[in-house]
């Protein structure tokens, strides 16, 4: 590794313009209006503030947990760290090789078969041709799909899809690992197998950012916790301390 991993977020705000008046965005609009997060930008477009003035930095060795209720901005923050959303205000620096395990499909193309999806993932990560067979072996062995590897991902059961997605995402070792909580959901059988592989990946990563509702997972894996509420940073500190405050607040409601 030639560069040191680091994450620096300084005064970042991300807002979603509401362009397309579909039922989904209308529903979203209603939900946002209820929480008072609707606004207008300087061109009088409707915008939803997803993150407001977030700042923190992470050094190698840190394991950050993101907590907060649904819609607190956890996933948006992960996507911002992954470079998918560029902020409208503030500065984002993320140095180091990066893996973002954000949603179950993980950019898999459901019309292509398992093998093709593995090849694409390898190519995207810029692996040399010589490494591709190894990647395929590793993923195939873990996902345990047998002949399904040659069928379109569309034909997989939900469990098989998750196995392939998980195997793919964890086959390539990053310095910075961004992970959404769906990743820890799965049937018990699979989770046991997955856990060892995931723990290895987490140990190997320099920086972990994990978004979850499970406080138990945060306690086991994280050294530091950021508590988000409606896109704002409520608390940032050592895991035990922030979790206690969070639980106290939840209990008070």
């Amino acid at each position: 590794m030639s560069i040191d991993a680091k994450i620096e977020i300084d005064g970042v705000s991300v807002s979603f313009p509401l362009y397309h008046g579909s039922a989904r965005s209308l529903k979203k609009t209603m939900a946002m209006a209820a929480t008072g997060r609707l606004g207008q930008d300087n061109q009088h477009r409707m915008v939803v503030g997803a993150l407001t003035d977030i700042r923190f930095s992470l050094a190698p060795g840190e394991r950050l947990g993101l907590i907060g209720s649904n819609g607190a901005g956890k996933t948006t923050l992960l996507r911002t760290l992954a470079g998918i959303y560029e902020p409208v205000v503030g500065r984002v620096s993320v140095h180091g090789s990066l893996a973002a395990l954000l949603d179950t499909s993980l950019g898999m193309n459901v019309d292509m078969n398992g093998r093709e999806n593995i090849l694409l993932r390898g190519l995207f990560n810029g692996l040399p041709k010589s490494m591709l067979p190894q990647l395929e072996r590793d993923v195939a062995e873990f996902a345990d799909l047998g002949d399904f590897l040659d069928l379109p991902v569309r034909t997989y059961s939900a469990g098989m899809g998750v196995r392939l997605g998980f195997a793919l995402a964890t086959a390539i070792r990053p310095q910075i690992l961004l992970m959404d909580e769906w990743f820890l959901a799965g049937d018990a059988n699979f989770m046991e197998k997955a856990r060892a592989r995931l723990e290895e990946l987490v140990r190997g990563a320099d920086i972990l950012v994990l978004s979850t509702h499970s406080l138990e997972i945060v306690r086991t894996w994280c050294t530091r916790v950021i508590w988000l509420d409606q896109g704002r940073l409520v608390a940032d500190g050592p895991a035990g301390e922030v979790l206690d405050r969070y639980l106290a607040a939840a209990g008070a409601v």
Binding site: V12, S13, S93, G96, L135, R137, A171, I172, R173, P174
Partner: peptide, 23 residues
């Protein structure tokens, strides 16, 4: 055993992201 044959698992591609709003 087969799993020992994997020397090192593939490493993700290095990247540097630096975004500053209002550039």
């Amino acid at each position: 055993p087969p799993h020992m044959n994997q020397t090192a698992s593939p490493v993700a591609r290095e990247s540097i992201l630096d975004f500053q709003a209002g550039q």
